[in-house]
Amino acid sequence: MEKSAGTSWGHEAVVKELMRVLEVHTEHKVELRESTELVGELGIDSLGVMEVVAELEDKFGLTIADDDLREVETVGDVARAVETRLRADGRWSE
C-alpha cells in the first residue's frame, strides 16, 4: 500500500521505499543490499545521487541537509539520512 508523505515510518518501510526508487534508476539490473555503493556499484553518478535524493524528499516529505549529503556513499547511508530527518520531524515509529 502507498504511504503518503505525512505518515510515520519504520526502518523496513524506509529501506523498501528506497530500493523501489533505486530500482527504477538502475533499471532493475543490480541486486541491492544496504552496503551497496551508489556510485561505485550502482553506476549512479554524483548528479544521479542528487536526483535520487530529490525523489526521496518528495516521497517522504522532508529535506535532507546538504551537510548530510556529503557523507552519503551506500544505500544504507541514504536510508540513515532519511531516518535522521524522520526522527527530527517526530515521524519515526520504532
Binding site: S46, L47, V53, A54, E57, D66, L69
Partner: peptide
C-alpha cells in the same frame, strides 16, 4: 541558491 540545491532540483 546553494549549488547543491540546484544540482538536486
Amino acid at each position: 541558491i546553494p549549488p547543491l540545491s540546484f544540482l538536486k532540483r
